[in-house]
Design a protein around this nucleic acid. Structure first.
Lengths: 337, 337
DNA sequence: GTCAAATCTACAAGCGCTGTCAACACAAAG
DNA sequence: CTTTGTGTTGACAGCGCTTGTAGATTTGAC
């Protein structure tokens, strides 16, 4: 039978109330007494019972990660999960996962989920992070939440990185190699990543004094097949691009596949770069030039902030974490094989 | 304020205890009364409070997925998670994740985790599923658990698939294409997957009347770099193999990388096949021939069984789920380009 | 030394549920 | 008609914690 708070109180010679104060981080306990209680906790190997705590305090000690059905992008989600778990470590909080089916009655779904599990806080991943109705419903329910890479310019907690600048940098890398005709396969419309990465692409062209050519930009949806299709469209142009910047790695892999099909060598005949640094980008041959998005840090920060906001409801924070260019073998100067 | 069991009882004109019986699936409630209570539950939109339930019933309604630090194999873990979540859906149970750091004091770690979160059940993934000391400790703590692909022939719940047979099948596929010199890069020693897949390889050779050649089998550790190294060793042989069966996809990707480095075309100069059907195997060029391991079903089944065993502690079950060969473009008859 | 503020104790209530056990209804048996 | 047994239902305590109140004690400032 595990120790109870009562046992700790008796062991330390204090009231249970004071032990409770220590457990919950109240500051009005004298340092000396606090130390004594903490050593009793340690001696008895005491860990508070989460159910009892939750029941009495009307809390669940649960943070839910709300993400899209993970058919695609599993490594992205997985990394976020690792980050969220890291943030929960050492706290009484536990992470639970909630993959939302992408349906219309999202409000109903969130209501059901909240009713059942009563999470104290949510971390929302795109596309849900961009769903204004959802956020509004959460506000109504008075549930704290943070978002990841939300394109909504709202006054809530959000964590992301400067995707526009990162996209610009990777395109500038292509420019610096000598490329002038650079194709772009966009992400799925509606995602912030679609607009930001496209804007970055245009920023880089503008700064390099290269005219924006609409025909070099084709629509993708972040999937491998859409990368293949995008590559087909671009490579079928009368004057095909010498480099293609795909808005994510899966599509970049699609581009590489199509290039191989056509017998084009990479990077000799075509430079390819992606975005996200998924595991696949490392195992591709050649290795894929991409942007490392620090998913773990993002997940960790998003969870930490939202937990902090439980104590301090006024907290509003727009954190931007650093990204890194990963230059690998899929990009080189044009026209040399 | 959400409805409480008391409200439901009042609405249905019964005692709270009877409502509780209905909620917990006790059979000794008359059908008519049960129906009335169920309609009251529905009418009031009642969902029991997990904390209260847990406190009163001395349960946590938590299933923990215990896996290795997810630096590698994130898609495998992710798929298992999806399966476990699926199994929890519609039950009062919730899934929590516990990535174990691979340290020596595993018993201490599990004790700490159990003390803090008090999960009702665990699902163990290799290599932890193979840790006899860990299982013993769980038995001592009287915590239900199930394992996934455990190589321990113990009397507990385990879910997996016939890896040996699957490995044999994929090697037979190579044989049927005309390959006689087939290399194998093994997995990490200690994992069941190491032994089973190697055994399958040998089974296939034996059945094809091909002598087992030790020099064609090199040790890997399931990582991409070890695949590269393994490929180097095999391709440097005086008589290199015409096909390589890597014990997982990551290593197969490493083989493809090395082949590309050497200017060997796949499958023209070298056939490659992997195992697991990770997302990368689909985006590789050419697509990788591999074995689909039904991770979701496995995770789901493992969680379902262990939840069932909470009610029925006598439950022992060794489930084998079906696998599928995925024949893609990385394998072909030898010697034709 | 005095007084207010800060700290601490004791105790009770109660969070929402389930377990225990007793009560009850109803059928079959005597 | 009573007795016994079986199945169904209810009353109530209590799970382990937090919160609140009222009062005791200590502390530090003056």
């Amino acid at each position: 039978m595990p120790a109870r708070i009562e046992d700790v109180a008796a062991h330390a010679g204090v009231s249970t109330k004071t032990v409770s104060r220590v457990l919950n981080g109240y500051t009005n306990v004298r340092a000396k007494l606090r130390a004594r209680i903490e050593s009793s906790i340690h001696a008895l190997n005491y860990v508070p019972n989460p159910s009892a705590r939750g029941l009495a305090g009307n809390r669940s000690y649960l943070v839910a990660l709300v993400y899209d059905n993970p058919l695609a992008g599993s490594s992205y989600t997985m990394e976020l999960i690792v980050g969220v778990l890291q943030a929960c470590k050492g706290t009484p909080y536990n992470a639970v996962l909630h993959p939302f089916e992408a349906t219309d009655d999202l409000a109903a779904q969130i209501d059901g989920f909240v009713a059942q599990h009563r999470p104290d806080a949510l971390v929302l991943v795109p596309p849900h992070a961009n769903n204004a109705r959802l956020l509004q419903r959460l506000d109504e329910l008075d549930i704290r939440y943070s978002t990841i890479s939300s394109k909504l310019r709202q006054s809530h907690i959000d964590v992301g990185f400067d995707e526009r600048r990162a996209a610009a940098e990777i395109v500038e890398h292509l420019v610096s190699l000598g490329h002038r005709r650079i194709g772009h396969i966009t992400g799925l419309r509606g995602h912030g990543a679609h607009a930001w990465r496209l804007s970055g692409y245009r920023d880089a062209l503008r700064r390099a004094g290269i005219a924006y050519d609409e025909s070099l930009v084709v629509a993708g949806d972040f999937t491998f097949p859409s990368g293949v299709e995008g590559a087909k469209a671009l490579l079928n142009l009368r004057r095909p691009p010498t480099a293609i910047f795909a808005a994510n790695d899966d599509m970049a892999c699609g581009v590489m596949r199509e290039a191989h099909e056509r017998g084009l060598s990479i990077p000799g005949d075509l430079s390819v770069c992606g975005f996200d640094d998924t595991p696949a980008s490392l195992v591709m041959s050649p290795g894929l030039t991409t942007v490392r998005q620090p998913c773990r840090e993002i997940g960790c920060l998003a969870a930490e902030s939202v937990l902090q906001s439980i104590r301090d409801p006024a907290l509003r924070q727009q954190a931007r974490v650093p990204y890194q260019l990963r230059l690998r073998e899929s990009t080189a100067a044009p026209g040399k094989s």
